[in-house]
Write a protein that binds this DNA or RNA. Structure first.
Lengths: 244, 244
DNA sequence: CGCATTTTGTAGACTCCTCTAAACAAAGTA
DNA sequence: TACTTTGTTTAGAGGAGTCTACAAAATGCG
C-alpha cells in the first residue's frame, strides 16, 4: 500500500486559488477580506498565502490591490473546481446526500483525487447521459430500495425485490446464528444510525469474510475473525449483521 | 461552499495508526523500522509520531519495545482501513482502475471521507450484492461501452447502443459546430489521454453549459462561456467536445 | 478636510511534520 | 571482553499554515 503524495501545491494553497477564482468569477474581484471570510481564516493568514501564490506565479498580487489569477493559476483553480463539481454531483445525485454534505465531502476530497479517477468518474457521468434507461433502472431502484427503504421491504415492484425478500426477510441469517468454526460472508447491515456507523468502522463491509469463533453468553459478546483478524463484538451487534 | 475540516487526528497520525494496525495483524508486532519503511519516512520521524499517539492514548509505547494499539487506537485504525477498502473496491471494481492506482487514490481519500458518504457507499455495495442482475446490466454495459470502447462503437449488443450510435456517430455535433450566441450542453469528450485530462480540468464536464461567443479562424481559437465563465480554447479542443 | 472605521500587512509565536546527523542501546561476533 | 551491526532516540533545523496583536493604508463621513 504505497501512499506517497507528491503534490505541486498544498491543499491550502489550492483552496486559496479556488476561492479567488470563484470570487473573480462572481463579483469580478477578490479581496483579502473576502477570502479570509470564505475560508474561515483570519486576514493575517491570507496575506502570506498570497505571497506564496504570487511567488509561484499563480496570481498577480500587488499589496492592497485586487487579486488576479494568472493563466496558470486559473488552470489550477479550474482543475480543483472541476473535481469539486464531479464529486459533489456524485454524492448528491447518485448517493443522494444533501447538497451541502455532498459539497463538504467534495471540498475535502477534491485535492487528492487523481487524474485517473477523475477521468473514470467523468466517463461514468458520460455513460449515464448516453444511456438514461440503464441509469434509471439501476440508480432509481438503488435509491428507492436501499436509501429510502433500507430493509428492502419497500414499494419497489421489480424482479430484484424477490431476491431481496428471500435474502433479507425469509431466510434471514445473522452473524449470531453461525456455528463456531463456520465461515461466511457479510451481506448487509440490518441497522441504521450510530450502530451502523460503528459496524462499518469495525470493518463489517459487504463481502467481508467472517468466521465464528465462539459465543460467550455470559459476557454477552461474540468472538469472531473478520477478514482473518480477531475481533469481539457485543451480542446485539451480531444480531444486525446479515450473512450468507 | 463551507470546507471546514475538524479532524481529531491529522491524516499523518491516522496513517501511522493504520500502518501499525496492518503490521500487528500481519506479523504480530510493529517496529519503528517497519513503520518508517512502509510510510516512506525516516525512522527519526516515526519516534516523535509514536510519542504523540501514545500521548493521545491510542498506542502503548515503551521506548525500544514493540508498538501495540490500544482498543481505541484499533478502532481508529479499523475505521481508516474500512474506508480504504471501500474506496479501493469502488475505484477498482466499478471504475476499473488498476488495483494499485485504486489503492493509491484510496490512501489519499480515506482520511477525509465523511461517515455519511461512507454509509452511502456501503449501501451501494449492499445493493449491488442484493441485486446482481441490475448491477450487471448497468455496470457491465458501462465497462464495455465506455471504458473499453470509449467511442460507444464497441461490441455491446444492447438497446442503449442505438442511442449511443445516434448521438455519437450519426448526428455528431461538436462545440466548433455551434453558432455564435448558441447555447448547449456538453455530452461527452471525444478524446483521450492528455487532451482529455486538459479538457476535464478546464471544466468540460457532462451537463456543463456552453455558449459559443465567437470563433477566431485567424487565431485558431474558439471563445466561449462555460457555465457562464469566459474561456478560450484552441480549435482542436473544440473539435473533441460533443454537445447536444 | 480631517478623523474614525475598515481593510490589509507585519511580526512573533505556535503546532505539525519532516529531515539530517549524531548519540545511544542491545544484540551478535571475533 | 571488545568490536560491529542493527535499530532507536535525540537534537536541531526548516517549511507550511495558522493565530494574535499591532501598524499602516484606504475609505467613509461629518
Amino acid at each position: 500500500m504505497r501512499c506517497t503524495r507528491s503534490a505541486i501545491l498544498t491543499s491550502a494553497l489550492e483552496d486559496y486559488l479556488e476561492t479567488i477564482y470563484l470570487f473573480v468569477q462572481q463579483q469580478g474581484f477578490a479581496r483579502v477580506r473576502d477570502i479570509a471570510k470564505a475560508r474561515n481564516v483570519k486576514a493575517g493568514s491570507v496575506s502570506p498565502a498570497m505571497k506564496r501564490l504570487a511567488a509561484l506565479g499563480l496570481i498577480e498580487y500587488a499589496q492592497r490591490e485586487y487579486i488576479k489569477l494568472t493563466d496558470e493559476g486559473e488552470r489550477f483553480a479550474r482543475k480543483i473546481f472541476s473535481r469539486h463539481e464531479i464529486l459533489t454531483r456524485f454524492f448528491h445525485e447518485f448517493l443522494k446526500m444533501d447538497l451541502e454534505d455532498a459539497s463538504a465531502d467534495a471540498c475535502a476530497l477534491e485535492h487528492s483525487l487523481s487524474d485517473e479517477a477523475m477521468d473514470r468518474l467523468v466517463r461514468l457521468f458520460e455513460f449515464m447521459r448516453l444511456c438514461p434507461e440503464r441509469k434509471r433502472e439501476f440508480w432509481d431502484f438503488f435509491h428507492t430500495c436501499t436509501l429510502v427503504n433500507p430493509d428492502g421491504t419497500g414499494e419497489c415492484n421489480h424482479e430484484c425485490t424477490e431476491n431481496v425478500r428471500r435474502l433479507v426477510i425469509r431466510s434471514k441469517k445473522y452473524l449470531k446464528d453461525m456455528e463456531p468454526g463456520e465461515t461466511s460472508k457479510v451481506i448487509k447491515l440490518d441497522s441504521s444510525g450510530d450502530e451502523r456507523n460503528v459496524l462499518i468502522d469495525l470493518g463489517f463491509l459487504p463481502e467481508a469474510s467472517v468466521e465464528m469463533v465462539r459465543i460467550s453468553e455470559s459476557e454477552g459478546r461474540v468472538y469472531i475473525k473478520l477478514n482473518g483478524y480477531r475481533l469481539s463484538i457485543p451480542m446485539e451487534y451480531a444480531e444486525a449483521i446479515l450473512v450468507e
